[in-house]
Design a protein around this nucleic acid. Structure first.
Lengths: 209, 209, 209, 209
DNA sequence: GGGTAACCGAGACGGTACGTCTAGTCTTTAA
DNA sequence: TTAAAGACTAGACGTACCGTCTCGGTTACCC
């Protein structure tokens, strides 16, 4: 499990940890990096992702704009790293259990992550990424991929052990499971326990033989 | 049923047709209105919703910026009216049939509307609306509501005639049905027939008793 | 004589007074124009032309940067209009007198204008204009041309009435007369009465038959 | 006379050749120094002094910015050393002859040096130095001083042997002689033989008794 | 048919942010 | 110790839009 720690940070950071030595010149400032991400998180409590500006982040972080542009290609990347590297967004990984139970746990976890103000921010990140395929890819990589992988494991497990319909396309099934949760926040509604419970029931039914 | 004609246009236009008389002063220019919507549509074939600017629309339409601001509160409104008032986005309405068949028809219609470049534009409209609850409400009103209504009719019908689980919450069920389609375009994937067919099968299963 | 009033302002202003009517759209703000020139003058008492920035002018004048860029092509133009439209830089014009006396008066006037801090600023304007032929042309038009014209009148007069060498090229003669004064400030020296007096003696001698 | 060789280089370089030994640590890299001056000269054929940046020089020379800042206080110094250390700018020194002839030779030489693109560069150097008295001083030291000295020798000689007016202030006389040539390039005009010839005639006349 | 009122286009206004560039400094490793 | 590399804070550049405003004009209705 340890190999998945800090997944988001590593996926976004442009200088992978494994190569960061054996370079000449002044090394990247860890304190600036942290200041930028902290400032971003703090600003996001007051403004939307769209109204957040690189200039404001730089100002708040006490950092030159160039430093941000040197390490992140655009605003979306900074925001994704700032938001998704938070502990609350670390994904839980598949644990040995029956498939239906696993799906339930994954959905509940995601629903909990997207309830409240985090949901708003994620919705705005998704919105911000729309016009740019690269940004969408990064969104998938830093946020959705782990959920995809975990769900795929459970779905494939269920298809093998007879819990789920073996003719079902796994990728489609994942979209069917994730879609309603994401759509809920995208369409401006709250995610509450009642919705979550009902949706889990329907979705597990949809997967069954 | 005729009361649904031109829903999008009427829902967005700030001066309802029924009140546009009995006013003094020069009346709103219909030709300007059309020029603005046409310019918006044409510009959207080349740029994203986010990069589209009110200034560019005004320039292209040969219209003063004030004229746009007078009739639409923001860019999202203009774009929604321009896009959703197109014939391709007029919704089909429930026709008497069994519930499962109705659901299938609705999903197929939506999938067809969102395949290709229209899907990209709708995804960008959804993204653009995220930071503003009012914009999300307008999005629901001009685009989603008709689909909600149609689906609600079928789902409630199915619950009554024994096709669908009567304990199921209709609103949740609608989100479960629409979610995967919308999520598909939001996450940067294409909507093809295979996905649609598979999803319909899963979703009708999820609704069943 | 009246046709020479406010020469500098008219030469620089991009919208000649004679055409400023019969235009559509909001008219140019006279108060902004004045605020920009005032701010420029005030900032020049503290910083050099080179360190002066358009942003600082805009900030100080309470004006958008665009407003400056709309009416002046570059920093040099703003500075020239701000400096040379001051009353102290209005040129004296040829008055009927003998040629030698006229030359003396012109040189004395210029020396007085360039003594003290005005000399520093003019030197910096000249320096700022060097890399750009257009800027040099504007410098000539807004500052030097009047001096050229006045000197030309006296020199040509002197050539006719026998005071000056008739074989002398007038343009060259003007450069010989103006050069030492300008060079004095360019080379970082002060212009004092002793220098002026000596130079006048030498230069009138150089013009004589 | 040999003590004047390479005057410009010695005057600008902060570590005189005579002391560069008897130091501990890694010695100054002669190849870097040359690379910097070469890069500067090459860049000046394409861009103006003002648009030339330390960064561009460092990049072109394959050198760290720090290396430039360690040895030259500012851009003007680098440019002056790069330009004025070229053979074409080595000054000719007074040779025994009559004073008027000496003045003529000095002016002709200077005029030749400032004709063509060298004149543009020198004008830009002068411009660049304006806002900074230290830079002006350095300009005088590396470029003008030799001309001052040579002219002073001839003028003082002429005052003694009766060719020139003995009451004339030598410093003022030098400014009167140099001013027109420098002013000519500063005001964006070309220096051609006709101008030079006419100016020499006028200026020698101005010096005479 | 003259007034009044709201519309229209044009375009200037004060602002904010963009992404790039450079300044001059600082911090590391290699020579 | 100096060199080289390159990251750092700082801040100006010139451009694009925002949403507002101020013009001169136009088109309806109402008295």
């Amino acid at each position: 499990m340890s190999q998945h720690d800090n997944t988001a940070e590593q996926a976004i950071a442009s200088v992978p940890a494994s190569e960061e030595n054996n370079k000449s010149g002044r090394p990247r400032s860890e304190s600036s990096r942290r200041a930028i991400l902290d400032a971003t998180r703090r600003l996001l409590t007051h403004t939307s992702v769209q109204k957040l500006s690189i200039e404001a982040i730089a100002r708040k972080a006490g950092v030159g704009k160039t430093t941000i542009y040197r390490w992140w290609p655009n605003k979306a990347s900074v925001v994704m790293e700032a938001v998704f590297s938070q502990p609350a967004f670390q994904n839980i990984l598949p644990t040995p259990s029956n498939a239906k139970q696993g799906i339930r746990i994954q959905i509940e976890k995601l629903a909990r992550q997207l309830a409240g103000k985090h949901g708003r921010i994620v919705a705005e990140i998704i919105g911000e990424a729309q016009p740019d395929q690269e940004a969408i890819d990064m969104l998938v990589k830093t946020f959705l991929q782990d959920r995809y992988d975990a769900l795929a494991a459970y779905i494939n497990g269920g298809k093998k052990n007879g819990e789920f319909d073996p003719d079902m396309d796994t990728d489609t099934a994942i979209d069917v499971v994730l879609g309603p949760i994401i759509f809920r926040i995208i369409s401006g509604q709250e995610i509450d326990d009642e919705f979550t419970e009902q949706a889990i029931n329907m979705l597990t039914k949809s997967l069954s033989v």
